[in-house]
Amino acid sequence: MTSSQSLDLVIVGTGPAGLTAALYAARYKLNALSIGQIDGGLMSEAHKICNFPTELSISGLDLTSKMKANALSQGAIIENGKVKDITKGENSFEVILDNKEKYFTKTILLATGTKHRQLGLKNENKFIGRGISYCATCDGMLFKNKIVAVIGGSDSALTSALYLAEIASKVYIIYRGKALRGEPAWLEKINNKKNIEIILNTNLKNLIGEEKLISVELDQPYQNQPLLNLDGIFVEIGTEPDHGDYIKNLGIELDNNNYIKVDSSQKTNIRGIWAAGDITNASNNFRQIITACAEGAIAAESINRYIQLL
């Protein structure tokens, strides 16, 4: 794709919303380009997905490959890169990538999803890759027969713990709430795992280690000990919208939690810009792969109608 040509649509993000929109846009024969950093986005990190209607059980990596292959087979054009800036011109938008490439487009679909929330503890960044991970599927195998903890109590925390329990010798789940809150199907599996131990009503207070993490300090003692010795922690305390500074500059309206406000056709408050997937407020805060796909499809249809009337 050459930079100078004017496009109908630039899709920012290559997770389930972006890939589905790319598939629909290709079938509508729109002159569209998708740009994303990681194929599949957070979906690519999922160890096991059992609630996507066509799949009995599939890894995020495999579901990503299928979605991407499907979009490509319909003629979608997908590039790897990071969008640095988007500016609004009179009749088009200019999209600038990190590598300084530029594209002009009539419409934009923002589908950049969410990113992992960090613990917010001192030294957290220092220990990333040295005992702190945000992706059990990526890094779990590096903790064979080690002691690890998963921080969090949601479905992602529980599936990560179940995956890690097959590799590590011991898995703690440390959660601030008084009960884990994932799907009952996962909870049942957790309770049947002998090497998973659940620590409730507890937060991490400090990360301890020199070169690498060796223990964590809890805000209340566990088995009379304030310190828990371990080899690694996997942080699964939720996600937050992943948007660039351009969102603010374009004047896109956000809700109280910084998710993009959209109407029932996925339009934002800015003419020519749509948003879909986990970055929006459209799924009743459910934010599932299937709701992201649906939002991507709705957005592409609405964009197609808009383009046809231009």
Partner: peptide, 28 residues
């Protein structure tokens, strides 16, 4: 080499690690 997160890229010079890059990086 104490790899605990991937991709982990280490720069070796004269047999020693002189730099480390953890996670996806842009080419430039």
């Amino acid at each position: 080499y104490q790899i605990q997160s991937i991709p982990n890229m280490k720069l070796f010079k004269d047999g020693k690690v002189i730099g480390e890059f953890i996670g996806l990086r842009e080419l430039e």
